[in-house]
Simulated assay, not measured.
Amino acid sequence: MKRWSLMMVVLILAVVVAACGNGNSKNNTAGGNKGADKGNNAEQTNAGKSNDAEVKTKDTLTIVWLPNESGGNMKEARDEIGALVEKASGKKVEHKVTTDYIIAVESIANGTADIGYFGPQAYVEANAKNDKVQPLVTNAGKSGTLEDAMYYSWLAVNKGEESGYAAGDSFAIDNIKGKKFSFVSNSSTSGFKVPTAGIISYFKDNHAMADLTADDLVEGGKDKFFSQVLFGGSHQGSAVNLMSGKVDVAAFCNTCVVNYVELAAGEENAVGSTYKVKADAEAPFNTVAGKEFAVISSTPVLNQPFIVNTDTVSAEHIKLITDAFESDETTNNPKIFVPEDSEFSGMFKKDGETRFLKVEDAWFNPIRELTGGAAK
């Protein structure tokens, strides 16, 4: 997987270079339970291209969340983002939480939701359905730039089983073939698109499986690549599929499980590292408290963006909201960028100079190209 990781980094950096020259919120449930340059630059986003004469921003803005951020333990974090949007826009905010990626994508594409926080693949899908859906901001990397704005797609196995994937002083994925495997959702970047692309590339290069496609990986059976395939519905669900013994290998991302696990051995996000579920982990990890898993593959992925439907939110309000995200007040908000020693269950960890930065649609072209789509 080292070759694949390097390829992803090259793609990411190439696009970055090209792209550079709680409040009073309410909650709805859908699908079940569960510094940057500012001023004139903010007006240059693709999101700001809507004609205000044609857009009448609603009195209430709806923020839709993917299943990964829809859990009860994320409520305060969602409300903090809602408060930011309310203060900037002067509009009421409602939250739409989901248990299905498809519901979230359809909501932002058809305008029943106005803003969302989506993985790159889910954003690309929403944009393909309606090109008025555009990115607002994403969280920068430790450097405070988009250059290292990435998280990690993991393939993991239960602790004690990692020796079956050993390759010298590292690990390889040769032996995942024939195993029981868990993905997140076929709309997930790090829980499906990146893992499938990596598996296909590896087995084509190392096992002469030239005809292997993503379709071959989604259904299990005796004559299939995997003996059984499950979809967790969320990154948390996929991780629990692994630790509860339902599968042998699972794909999920580091950021979606960070509030439930702690590093037990090795370096953060490194192949061979071991993580342990916290003793007081909230659902769904409370059922696997104390369990450990080992990372056998770790691939960098572009950070996910906050996105907006420019048909339902005016350019004026988009600029106000974007400026609020990029502000020092937001950067220094410990309930948005959570300090390392905090017990608050947030979405973003304070790490170096990280903050929100405006991002363009073209930055996500590597994700489009990952599955054969055309760059924009």
Rank of each mutant, 00 (worst) to 15 (best):
D248G: 03
G116E: 09
A265W: 04
G178Q: 01
V229H: 09
I63W: 01
T310F: 01
A104I: 04
N22L: 11
L320K: 13
F225K: 03
A289W: 09
G116F: 06
D59L: 07
A251S: 12
I173A: 08
I115T: 08
F203E: 04
R355A: 14
N254M: 14
A19Y: 02
L217W: 04
G31Q: 02
E326V: 08
Q228M: 13
I81G: 00
E54I: 11
A122L: 10
P120C: 10
A279E: 15
G373V: 00
V277F: 07
S238R: 04
F192D: 07
K278P: 12
N139I: 10
A374F: 06
K358A: 14
T138F: 15
P334C: 00
A315W: 02
V105H: 00
G116R: 01
G352Y: 06
N28R: 12
E219N: 02
S342A: 06
F192Q: 09
A166R: 09
T330G: 05
V295Q: 01
F364W: 05
A315K: 13
N33V: 11
S234I: 03
T371V: 09
L61A: 10
A18K: 13
A104V: 01
K87V: 01
A279D: 15
V9E: 13
Y151E: 12
A36R: 07
Y275I: 08
E147M: 14
A149F: 06
S89Y: 03
I81A: 02
I318M: 08
I318H: 10
T287L: 11
V194T: 12
I336W: 10
N269W: 05
N28A: 13
D211R: 01
Y123E: 03
G144H: 10
N110Y: 06
P135C: 07
E292V: 05
N139S: 14
F344G: 09
N259V: 10
G233D: 07
K91W: 12
E86W: 00
A210T: 15
F192L: 04
A265F: 10
K159C: 12
G245E: 07
C253W: 08
W154R: 04
A30Y: 13
G346M: 05
K193R: 15
S238H: 00
G191P: 05
K349H: 11
C20M: 15
A30R: 13
P366F: 09
A210D: 14
N365K: 03
T29Q: 15
V9M: 14
G191Y: 02
K193G: 14
K129Y: 05
T138N: 15
K291M: 04
G237K: 06
Y165H: 10
A53M: 06
F285L: 04
M1W: 13
T45S: 09
T287H: 06
L61Y: 03
A109V: 06
G245T: 09
S314R: 01
D216Y: 01
E69T: 11
